[in-house]
Design a protein around this nucleic acid. Structure first.
Lengths: 340, 340
DNA sequence: GATTAAAATGTAAGCGCTTACATTCCGAAG
DNA sequence: CTTCGGAATGTAAGCGCTTACATTTTAATC
């Protein structure tokens, strides 16, 4: 109704008090008599008044909005992280906005700019797949950013940076997977990783190798292939394995570093007439929503990405400088089978 | 190095001019001599100064941030819309933040509150699946919202509301699909819709029926099933069809209102030993990223959701009160086949 | 009833910008 | 060398809050 927005002055005059008093009840301060508080609150109700976030921010130098930098939302893995972060932010009265990785390059709209304009109170950066060639550079610039605003990372970071972060225990996950496959009788286990020098992917490879070692299985370079995390990359990777190896060395199980690549593997296996899981077991990682509906339904690792996003927000807001590791579980479906 | 953020005063004194002049070069006004502009710009560079968005917003009553209300991001359909919107917003120097539908209910964090706090310059609301029972109510409250801030809708709206909106031509899409299936020789075509009274789904059903009519095929209630758009709903829907119908009436083709339901259909068909596409053709809608990797690869409708999101942002920012309809294309894959 | 400390409230000075208006500067015209 | 008008620049008043500090009430104590 009131065409224009009411200000604190309107409320003050309506309630017959000073703006300071209104401000006090607004922020729930103690020293306000019950009667006054009543009057003010009624006035607020009546005008449907909300304090201007701009004015508030001007004094507090705050915006109640956060940023999160992710590679791309179209990958459901990131959509999960984002959703978790968004929900937690909302719960705490914050707004969160997305910055695709590439926005880091466009000056007009990079987080650093947002920060400098004080449009952001803090930022979460997902560095899981931080490309190695730019890795150091990016981390260094984040370190800079950090001098001016809170930064929380998602993903693993070299220990000499002490960013607050929440990450996966990549190595442990991989060891878990290898152990699972071994328990099903597999001995020829291939690994399709992300780009080797990438951040988390590297640790996954380490875990894979450790897993093999613990199972007293030999490690072979030719069982280790790389791709950039897309279904197409999965197709290429599986092709490489089956094209370069002699049939007697063909793996009986493949670990894909994420479900996207696993999807590609399924498609390619189908094309080649490789029966799954009879001739080839496959396990992915991320437990995407579509995993149960693939053929065969994909066994995967659920690492609670929403929770990861939520934790990152909590760390960001609370300012704790902790490094946390999420837990995970293996979700058994039809794509892995005991070897005959 | 500059521990604290520079203000316009710092720049002014550095450059030896008044803050008004700094403000002028900041906003690219004309009446500034080249020399002065130079000096000021150098000072800005040196201090890496950025104007505070809060202070700016306080005077202009603006935030350069938008909101978008979507059911849930975990559905890639919405992730696409969001991505398109986000990218366009970024391009125009805006920030956009997500509000899940349910946030409309929690007073502390609903768009209306954001609006009232002037934390948003405008909002996009996706009403594709607006539930009928709350539909009128929601639209009415949006109408209210609109008196205070720009609102753009995504999805179809009863014509008597004149919201700016971008939507799909649902009926035409469905007619297209039916025609396609008919061209493959199908005559028994079932339709798995969204909840009947939902906004866009209703129009889809209309299109389905029109498509049948144009092909001179009879319409049967028992070929029309509903679900709420999830894979599980797809499973249930297909079960219903095949459980309630006598085998001689089993459809040879099924139209699923979205790919999510189609995924469920595939799973259920598999469980029942119905060969796809030999015994049953299936077509979805949305063309999710996983469609090509399903089994069989899913034929679907690509309706350029990213573009939809982007257009919505453009309408919002430009303030045009237009209603637009996106185009689409049918993406042929393996899940539909000519009938034998 | 006077005294006094605590509680309640008010006053006013910013926060960092934009902008209407006032002032100064400059070169062209007289 | 004036005079004048527009261009360049400066001054100051907000925008709607928060908050330190000042003032007024209130109620408890003697």
């Amino acid at each position: 109704m009131p065409g224009e927005n009411a200000t604190i002055y309107d409320i003050a005059s309506d309630a017959g008090v000073s703006i300071a008093t209104v401000s006090r009840v607004l922020r729930g301060e103690q020293n306000v008599s019950a009667a006054t508080k009543e009057k003010v609150q009624r006035a607020i109700e009546k005008r449907n008044y909300r304090p201007s976030s701009n004015a508030r921010g001007l004094t507090s130098n705050t915006t109640h909005s956060l940023g999160i930098v992710l590679p791309k939302l179209l990958n459901p893995h990131y959509a999960m992280i984002f959703t978790g972060a968004q929900e937690e932010a909302a719960r705490q009265g914050y707004t969160i906005s997305l910055f695709p990785w590439n926005s880091l390059d466009t000056r007009a709209y990079d987080p650093a700019t947002m920060l400098a304009e004080r449009r952001l109170d803090g930022i979460i950066v997902c560095v899981e797949y931080l490309p190695a060639d730019r890795g150091e550079q990016v981390l260094a610039s984040l370190q800079n950013l950090r001098r001016v605003m809170p930064v929380v990372l998602i993903g693993c970071v070299p220990p000499w940076y002490d960013f607050p972060a929440v990450s996966n225990n990549n190595a442990a996950i991989m060891k878990d997977i290898v152990a699972y496959l071994v328990s099903l009788g597999h001995e020829k286990i291939a690994f399709i990783g992300g780009i080797r020098e990438d951040n988390d992917p590297m640790r996954r490879e380490i875990g894979y190798r450790e897993g093999l070692r613990e199972a007293r299985l030999p490690y072979t370079d030719s069982y280790r292939v790389y791709g950039k995390g897309t279904p197409e990359a999965g197709i290429a990777a599986l092709s490489t394995i089956f094209d370069t190896l002699k049939p007697e060395y063909w793996p009986t199980a493949v670990i894909a570093m994420n479900d996207l690549m696993a999807m590609g593997c399924q498609t390619e296996a189908r094309r080649r007439g490789i029966a799954m899981p009879e001739q080839l077991s496959l396990i992915g990682c991320d437990d995407l929503f579509c995993a149960p509906y693939l053929y065969p339904a994909l066994t995967s690792i659920n690492s609670h990405q929403q929770r990861t996003g939520a934790r990152a927000v909590q760390l960001l807001i609370s300012g704790e400088n902790k490094q946390e590791t999420g837990d995970w579980e293996l979700v058994e479906r039809a794509s892995c089978a005991r070897i005959k």
